[in-house]
Design a protein around this nucleic acid. Structure first.
Lengths: 214, 214
DNA sequence: GTCTATACTTGGATAGAC
DNA sequence: GTCTATCCAAGTATAGAC
């Protein structure tokens, strides 16, 4: 927010905020559709039907706009995720929810935006750490969710939660990346299927660890 | 090879091949150092100390050069991987080797090249499927390796090998992507550590499944 | 705050000399 | 086969009018 220009109050402020919002929204759309490299000031301005100069007036430079776009989808998806896992207490249930939310992500394009930003980070000096900052909440969220799920099971004392969470996030990103390569989403579906089957097999092996595992 | 120009024999052919090799080598270097977006014809030509026009003479367009570069690292790394897992027959051993080879990958930059190409695929129409083609051998390799490791264990009839292999490859890519974001490689190390610990825990749980698990 | 116009830069790709 | 010179397109960023 440091460099954000604009009047501090009045009708101009409202107008400015609305424009800003439109630009961010347009940036999200373009990021999903055309990827990082396609998200130029020109393209975003066209998508949002605003003049190209406004982008630099409001955001200074394109990468900062794209970060704002990432923040926007991120916070929207985080809410969905929190709601989705709220009632979950066992691992098979979590996997089921994960598969469902993953499908929504594919549709909403949020992971695509994140993956594109990560990809683009290698081209813009200094962007990497800013992306890391924005991934950390997801690792924490995953860690909390895993903690809730394994607490009370024999697994609890042994599972390194933080590392497991990092692994899950990395896997999610990797799957998304691969899934978008040839446009088919069959790969991800297959992975979730396989995961579910493994879960129902390992539940018993772990000594009826999962409360919902029947 | 269809569009490859050049004389079919003689001294000119040798000269041409050498130039071609230099360009590919330079492309690999630039891909590792600057990423996909930084791998322009200009940058590669400078790195290889050849004229920029030669790149188009030999490869037609930049993406085709970059694919050749990917093929080059890929085949080099595949040999290393095959040698590394040749003697492995149990899961903990495999994980140990995986950690070691991953470190070499980080140093050699091969996964970085792959990750960059995947990232870049979203910007170049039609590139995606060509990358998929080049990932398939890695999934097959992983699948074969996993098969060798679980055969004879109680896990064998239940583990969906193909999906597991896809998951491993996706995880590898995701970890690489995240690791390169802020330059630290501590994350990956932590993951391998955690994996090893989990393995030594689960070996007994699975009924002394692993021959080397003591 | 927003728009139009424009300066400047980079990179893909080709032409023609050697 | 290789080099130099050049054209053209796309994109960032700024200036100045409204």
């Amino acid at each position: 927010m440091v460099a954000k220009p604009g009047p501090k109050s009045g009708a101009g402020r409202r107008r400015s905020d609305e424009t800003r919002r439109r630009i961010v929204e347009a940036a999200v759309e373009v990021l999903k559709r055309e990827g990082f490299a396609g998200a130029s000031a020109v393209a975003v301005a066209a998508e949002g039907r605003v003049s190209q100069g406004l982008i630099f007036y409001h955001f200074g430079m394109v990468p900062d706009l794209l970060l704002a776009a990432l923040d926007e989808t991120s916070s929207r998806r985080m809410e969905e995720y929190r709601a989705a896992v709220a009632g979950i207490r066992d691992l098979p249930g979590l996997l089921e929810v994960a598969a469902r939310v993953y499908r929504e992500d594919l549709a909403s394009g949020h992971i695509k935006v994140l993956a594109e930003m990560i990809a683009g980070a290698s081209t813009v000096p200094g962007l990497g750490p800013k992306i890391v900052q924005r991934i950390e909440p997801w690792v924490r969220f995953t860690e909390d969710t895993l903690r809730a799920v394994v607490s009370g099971t024999p697994l609890e004392p042994f599972l390194p939660l933080h590392e497991a969470a990092q692994g899950v996030v990395a896997l999610y990103l990797g799957v998304e990346l691969l899934a978008h390569l040839d446009g088919e989403q069959g790969t991800a579906e297959g992975l979730f299927d396989a995961g579910s089957r493994l879960m129902s097999l390992m539940g018993p092996l772990l000594g009826v660890a999962y409360r919902g595992g029947g």
